[in-house]
Design a protein around this nucleic acid. Structure first.
Lengths: 358, 358
DNA sequence: CGAAAAGATGCAATCGTTGCCACACCGCGG
DNA sequence: CCGCGGTGTGGCAACGATTGCATCTTTTCG
């Protein structure tokens, strides 16, 4: 440490003790000069590629350490035409589901020394496309998204950026994807209610053309078919995200269709349904059964606890990141598709109907 | 559109209809050639700086549009020595509080056309420092962090990167900060319980040296002092984050110190306390009162609802981002400090003690 | 009418890193 | 002793956008 007396002298700017304004960042050329080599050699020593004598290596490493060298990511990206950032676009960071998804992604990326650029696009096509352009501009190593539209994925793929779709699937280009088995989830929830004896099961589902909602709806139908029960279409209520009248419409469904149970196909709708039931003074399980989708915290804390279809949310994020890392590592590999299984968590919000109708 | 017949001809690679592998991204030089100008003029036209004739401008704009030009962020960053990304480091993305904080930050940054690089550092000093280096390498325009240690902020500040501390404050360098008035929050919660007649109020607080916990503790003491009540130090229980024995220790506190009320100074501890009380069959309000800190979703959904000190979490994030944007805009301005006021939300988990001791 | 100002453009250098290429050593086998 | 691989090393040209400067053209105005 500081053994070479001359070292400080050769530093052009007083960078040592006072710690004031290096301002101009330390470059490779600086540490090369410091160690008496060329920039090329410095680059080789620090990146570990190519021949460098042991002596030069330690000198350079020491110099880099001493001067606090931090390689310039943009220069590297410019030269190598790819960066270590991964773009991640989710629908709504404020929603616990997407936050956990992002947490899972970030964790895995971090372990592989990639950075996550996270944006929340409100499921807006224009914003999604704009973010795709941004990720393109950053020369992102890849992009993970919960897609709202196929245009973004197409744009990215066309420009050679790897895309992983997570939670939903709607790309028109071949691409990696990891989703939940939504149909199975819908089936689990619905079959559970059917087995309890319910015959009029209201379905609250997001009003989208996404695979998540389509899958859950399909599961709902399939469970009915399996049980030989005809679905009354009026029991199916599509509700747009953030619809201001969501709770009124749920209330109307309760009034007009007299369901004995409700299957709310996402965590928001479950919350809405729960609130409507509470406001109306309807007792869960006794008066109306309720099944939610996505095991968010409150469902196990309220009394009675809510029966839900649990998704491995963080794992979903991790898998998506793993899929992307695999593709970065081996760009030629077959598009991967993973489908994680949801599980039914039975709590106290479901019970046989009190007055069984036909 | 496509009026100039020759335009496709001059494109060297078939980029038009087939949409297959442009592979090499479109550069400024490409669109300059396409429009018959130099790259300099193209740059001026697209960036809007400097003289460009109207004719050249439209030609270049059209060419850029037609070829799908996306400026290379790394080249721009390299040249301008600053990027449009803002590094954000929070303690734990899986915690709703930090997720919402990040959501608020992202929203504001997005509106100003900045990107958020989000990392979750687990309050680990080493990780935090490593991220600071990464942000440095990316030439981040600024960094927003919930700090765990002062080293990261110092490193960044020393290298000319603007730092905003959010939620907590512990930088040794002058820097912008936005926090909650934790002392007031602690006081609100404690005073509420004291007014109800409680004299033995257990305090669950994170075992850190952060300003959040110190502030809440100070508020707890200050409220006692204001009411002329002496604090029994044995009622104060510091619990480390993710301590596996958190609930056992809370149970022990209940057993040994017989508090008539509990003030849990963060959302995790509130959840732990709530669970312990439930497991023990203790009725909220009637047997033990409970006040939480941070109005997360479940607190208003459980029965009885939990009285909490609510923080404007998203707003906290927004303000932090605004502070950073202001500083980027005017690097010389005085370090800003904002302190947002928490509010007490009284629900049904608090009531006068049944058996008033002393 | 001529000079100065404004308008418009291109050249070339620059940002920091990487990687190709050439060169310079070394010892060794032919 | 020549050449040949194996080692090290430095020079130089990229990567793609920006920008100061020089150049050239057009106005404008005294």
């Amino acid at each position: 440490m500081g053994g070479v007396a001359g070292c400080n002298v050769s530093v052009h700017e007083g960078s040592g003790l006072v710690g004031e304004q290096p301002l101009r960042p330390v470059t490779l050329a600086d540490i090369a000069r410091e160690a008496g080599t060329s920039a090329s050699t410095a680059s080789r020593a620090l990146s570990g590629r190519g021949y460098v004598s042991p002596l030069a290596r330690v000198r350079l490493l020491e110099a880099a350490e001493r001067l606090g060298y931090v390689p310039d990511a943009s220069a590297r990206t410019l030269k190598q035409r790819t960066s270590r950032v991964v773009g991640v676009a989710v629908s709504d960071l404020g929603n616990q589901f997407y936050a956990l998804l992002a947490a899972g992604i970030e964790q895995t990326l971090r372990e592989a020394d990639y950075q996550m650029v996270l944006v929340s696009d409100n499921s807006d096509r224009a914003q999604e496309l704009s973010f795709a352009r941004t990720f393109l501009a950053m020369r992102a190593a890849g992009v993970i998204m919960t897609p709202a539209d196929s245009a973004a994925a197409s744009l990215l793929a066309r420009n050679g950026v790897d895309v992983v779709e997570v939670d939903r699937q709607l790309a028109e280009v071949p691409c990696d994807a990891v989703v939940i088995d939504n149909e199975e989830g819908g089936r689990l929830a619905t079959a559970h209610l059917l087995e309890l004896g319910h015959r009029r099961i209201g379905l609250l589902v997001a009003d989208t053309d996404w695979t998540t909602d389509a899958g859950r709806l399909a599961g709902y139908r399939s469970a009915h078919a399996g049980a030989g029960v005809v679905v009354d279409e009026r029991l199916i209520l599509p509700i747009a995200f953030h619809a201001p009248d969501a709770e009124q419409r749920i209330a109307a469904l309760l009034d007009k269709q007299a369901p004995t149970a409700i299957f709310a196909a996402n965590n928001q709708l479950a919350e809405h349904a729960w609130k409507v039931l509470r406001v109306r003074g309807l007792r869960l399980a006794q008066d109306v059964s309720l099944v939610g989708f996505d095991d968010v915290a409150w469902t196990s804390m309220v009394d009675p606890g809510i029966t839900v279809v649990a998704q491995p949310t963080i794992e979903l994020g991790r898998r998506a990141a793993q899929l992307l890392l695999r593709r970065i590592d081996d760009p030629g590999c077959e598009p991967g598709f993973e489908c994680l299984e949801p599980t039914l968590v039975v709590r106290a919000s479901t019970a046989p109907p009190t007055l069984a109708t036909t």
